[in-house]
Write a protein that binds this DNA or RNA. Structure first.
Lengths: 130, 130
DNA sequence: TTAATTGTATATGTACAATATACAAATTAA
DNA sequence: TTAATTTGTATATTGTACATATACAATTAA
């Protein structure tokens, strides 16, 4: 079975397409929407659907394979693997903190109200307890 | 006076340097660390400090000027302007939501624990009520 | 008026993103 | 077993964007 991840990519974004694909899929993997043993669409299928060349998708899959999320076999497509989460490192935490700050700042600058931001942060936290 | 923003840039990051500078400064602007009337370092000063070419800094300043944060005058340097926050738009909010999701996913994939993430999200919220 | 300081404009080298195309492996069907 | 098809891979090419070098223009100060 090939669950359609229903990705949102923005061709106008400064972030390269292959990385948008990586980021989208990583979210689904972390959240468990895509689980061990699931098979992703073929590079050609997903490329067609997103309107980009299949090599761009292949690059994204390779990146996720490097991160330990996927196993790529010829003809069998990309299969989601079991993956052990790395140990928490302070440097990574600091990077996370900086990125979060900048994301919130970007949102506020773009007009997202403090109320809305708070709401989304809260939602995000509640997903964990659930 | 020229407050030193004390920016953190990572030459190894895939995010281009000029955008790292933009993101860092935008945080300081949104948070009010840099306020109306403040003057930023000259492009050559900041470039020297960060070890990049001054044109790279100029590009960042121009970006922030486009966003309405800075006014650039020859010889007078970059001056922080009063800026009216745009009205909240649903599309922007959705983008913010996607970015937040991806940031958290990235963090979890890199080993940041749910506990740590929750802690940072909470901190961020508390900054608003303060 | 002259000199120094600063942002701007243009050109260039380099790296990376995205594609085109040919190839190799694995499955399926005859 | 063999041939055809489906897939990911490898390599080359093209275009775009990042970063720099360098010359220029404007403004301030001496």
């Amino acid at each position: 079975m090939r669950p359609d991840p229903n990705l949102v990519i923005d061709p106008a974004s400064p972030v390269p397409v292959y990385r948008q694909v990586v980021d989208n899929l990583r979210s689904l993997l972390v959240e468990g929407v895509l689980q061990e043993g699931d098979t992703l669409p073929t590079v050609r299928e997903l490329g067609m659907e997103l309107g980009v060349h299949f090599n761009t998708i292949a690059e994204a899959y390779r990146q996720l394979a490097t991160e330990g999320w996927l196993e790529l076999k010829r003809r069998r497509g990309a299969v989601v693997m079991a993956r052990t989460t790395p140990v928490e490192q302070s440097e990574v935490v600091e990077q996370f903190h900086r990125n979060l700050r900048q994301l919130v700042a970007q949102g506020r600058a773009d007009g997202v109200s403090i109320r809305t931001i708070t709401q989304h942060l809260k939602e995000m936290m509640e997903e964990f307890s659930a």
